[in-house]
Design a protein around this nucleic acid. Structure first.
Lengths: 243, 243
DNA sequence: TGTCTTTATATGTCTATACATCCTTAGACA
DNA sequence: TGTCTAAGGATGTATAGACATATAAAGACA
């Protein structure tokens, strides 16, 4: 008596179903410790690699938590997460029927980045970083300040593109395969230089979107988008996924 | 000469980086056919299972397309949706190991909502609306002001729950099946009353998350979360579904 | 020419084994 | 009593080999 279903699906899928079944029927409640891989091998009659693959994939999906040397546990139910979509500023402005204009403030290669920047890129040695600072206008009113730091090792010829017409994000997307993205949204008062560039007063509320992207293990870009709070809001309408 | 990096990461990660590198530098453009697993085994000097795992994970991330019996190809760059995850404030505070406390400021049934509220709920007739205003503290420092308007037709007994301990969102989630959610994020200066409740100065920058939910065609809740800009940021780390 | 069959190729799965790495615990020892 | 160390147990990675399965191409045959 193995406990595995007898459908035509591969074995590792059956092992996943077996685990999901035990979680679903309350047999293994939250934070419960699962039988070890070795135990599952014995009780289910499959090889350890097959069990391991099943558990690894469930862990990647966030259903399990694994600690090397300790065991496998049922993860807490996924936090009711809500997803916000952020779209490209140029497309958005054009979609609203407004006129878009971009102004390049800074475009440079930083040969010797400061420690803060090096830390952001997780560089251990001094490596050059490409840097751009662009202001986006909607009908000649500034709405977004786009500051980007790019790893020239991964993104070739970043500085050569035409920043006034091409969406920077589009360029990055097509030139580099991004595998991971981190976002941070906060509200901050405008600094003196930001206020000047965005035609607002110092300390006016701004929405700041920080974004960091990876290609594999390497940091590809570090970006900061500053929106004028009184002129802009990030928004989305979203159909939540089941469960 | 293997072409693999010599960092300390596992071999399958190096294989992934090798593939990503070839895609990134244009060596393998879109729809290009990759070398077969067998070829990669030969040229990289690792076992087939290792190559297979690397390619499988990249395929799961949407970077590659594989067809059994045919080969592996560079997937077309799919529009990369940028999503931000917003989690429950109470869980978040507790996850950080901080102490959470909630203070109920207002809890009432509004029998005759004003026109603004009626419009938000898309009511055509005068219907009552439940209203709660709660301040969330992290270690006795206010971080979030939670204002909720709830449709009592859909959410029964909303006012009866214990707002100081139960996560309001959890209650809503379990009592009503939400079918649609709309979000709006903006940065605004704190009003006088908000400043007083959040222990900040008037006009200090705040992050405002507006959320509206539907159950079918009917508006279920209208919520506004106000975060203290200097103390809080919405964040997420996310693996994009496809490229 | 058209269709069926065979063959080659590539990916998909599974096993048995080995070693690495991390954590916990029990025991030795000062 | 406290601390260091060793052992054991659990997961993490890697390999070689085998078989399964899907697809395309080449060949056999009508």
């Amino acid at each position: 008596m193995t406990g595995l279903s007898n459908t035509a699906s591969p074995l590792y899928e059956k092992v996943k179903d077996f685990v999901l079944g035990n979680i679903g029927n309350g047999n293994w409640p939250q934070d419960a410790k699962l039988p070890s891989e070795h135990d599952l091998v014995s009780s289910l009659g499959v090889s350890r690699m097959t069990v391991h693959r099943a558990l690894r994939e469930l862990t990647a999906q966030g259903l399990l938590r694994r600690v090397q040397g300790v065991g496998t546990f049922v993860a807490p139910p996924k936090a009711q997460s809500t997803l916000i979509e952020i779209s490209n500023i140029i497309n958005e402005i054009k979609a609203r029927g407004s006129r878009h204009r971009a102004e390049v403030v800074v475009l440079e290669r930083i040969e010797h980045p400061d420690p803060t920047l090096l830390r952001a890129f997780e560089f251990r040695t001094r490596q050059p970083v490409d840097h751009s600072l662009v202001v986006h206008f909607e009908n000649n009113v500034p709405v977004q300040l786009e500051e980007r730091y790019v790893n020239p090792e991964l993104v070739k010829n970043y500085l050569d593109q035409d920043f006034t017409s091409i969406a920077t994000y589009d360029y990055l997307q097509h030139s580099t395969p991004l595998t991971e993205v981190e976002h941070l949204i906060s509200a901050v008062p405008a600094s003196e230089t930001h206020a000047k560039l965005l035609h607002i007063r110092e300390n006016d509320s701004c929405l700041v979107l920080f974004r960091k992207t990876w290609t594999g293990q390497t940091v590809a870009t570090v970006n900061t988008f500053t929106y004028v709070g009184s002129r802009y809001a990030l928004g989305s309408r979203y159909l939540p996924p089941a469960r």
